[in-house]
């Protein structure tokens, strides 16, 4: 069984930043997709570092990525045992490895649309904000107009801007009495023709094959060919299931808590890396 000083799970900004801070140790960085960078790969808005897009930010951070860090792409960690071993799955084969320290950098996911228990049909044209971002930025597909965006956090606002700039008529529906999100993401709305409805939410989805409208709690009917749920991010730590591990797991980045800025993720990952280094040093001294 191969042994690593540190196993880092997740190849987004948190995992990359942690791995870089571990230079000199025997590190394995595991990523499920075929490239590093995580969700930033689909973020083309200039919201990272010094006015950079997600991919620009990633290439910056990867430009001095140490060569001696082992990176396993297209690989999933399917189990972590209390004995500090992990099962990796790659293609059709599985491999057991052991580790001294574990850094979890698995990011977050969007709360699924289904969580909201909206009544009605389940037609085509209902997406989460992240899906729309992927459609526009990666595949160049603009969802049909008009669109209703449910939720006004940062992601909802960013997607609203994307859509508006692509000539999609946008209505934002927010259950609270004011818009959410960072001020810089809210600012552009002034002077833009985006309809905003507060203190209400979507109660029912209409349409058979494809969506043709939504009904709000007060009964208002809004025509819509696209419904986008932007109702929040939840940390993804499901790999730990509800097991109790007899060792410290360094949880960092968005799988610990959802950070508003990428720099916060990177700093938190470096903190986790330093904690792992400290544990290794202490065990060596013993």
């Amino acid at each position: 069984m191969k042994h690593y000083d540190v196993l880092v799970i997740g190849g987004g900004i948190a995992g990359i930043s942690a791995a870089k801070a571990l230079d000199g140790l025997k590190v394995l960085l595991v990523e499920k997709s075929d490239r590093l960078g995580g969700i930033l790969n689909q973020c083309l808005h200039r919201g990272f570092g010094k006015d950079m897009t997600g991919p620009e930010y990633i290439s910056g951070i990867l430009s001095d990525f140490p060569e001696n860090i082992n990176v396993a792409l297209k690989t999933a960690v399917t189990d972590i045992t209390p004995q500090k071993t992990a099962t990796l799955r790659h293609e059709n084969s599985t491999e057991e490895i052991s580790f001294s320290e574990l850094i979890l950098a698995t990011g977050c996911m969007e709360r699924p649309t289904g969580h909201m228990l909206i009544a009605g049909s389940r037609p085509e044209g209902v997406y989460t904000a992240g899906q729309v971002q992927e459609m526009i930025n990666i595949h160049g597909i603009i969802p049909p107009s008009p669109a209703v965006i449910l939720g006004s956090g940062d992601i909802g606002l960013i997607v609203a801007k994307h859509l508006f700039e692509n000539n999609v008529e946008v209505t934002i529906v927010e259950i609270k009495d004011q818009l959410g999100g960072l001020a810089r993401n809210r600012m552009w709305l002034e002077g833009y023709d985006v309809k905003i409805m507060i203190n209400t939410t979507v109660k029912k989805i209409l349409g058979e094959e494809s969506i043709n409208g939504v009904v709000l709690t007060d009964g208002t009917h809004i025509p819509a060919k696209t419904l986008i749920a932007a109702t929040g991010l939840i940390p993804d730590r499901e790999i730990l299931k509800y097991k109790n591990y007899p060792f410290e797991i360094h949880i960092c980045g968005n799988c610990k808590e959802v950070f508003p800025m990428v720099e916060g993720v990177a700093r938190d990952a470096e903190r986790a890396a330093n904690a792992a280094i400290e544990n290794i040093r202490r065990n060596n001294d013993r």
Binding site: M109, P112, T113
Partner: peptide, 10 residues
């Protein structure tokens, strides 16, 4: 799964 396809359906 938990994300209900938001990360893979596209």
């Amino acid at each position: 799964g938990k994300c209900q396809g938001s990360r893979c359906s596209i």
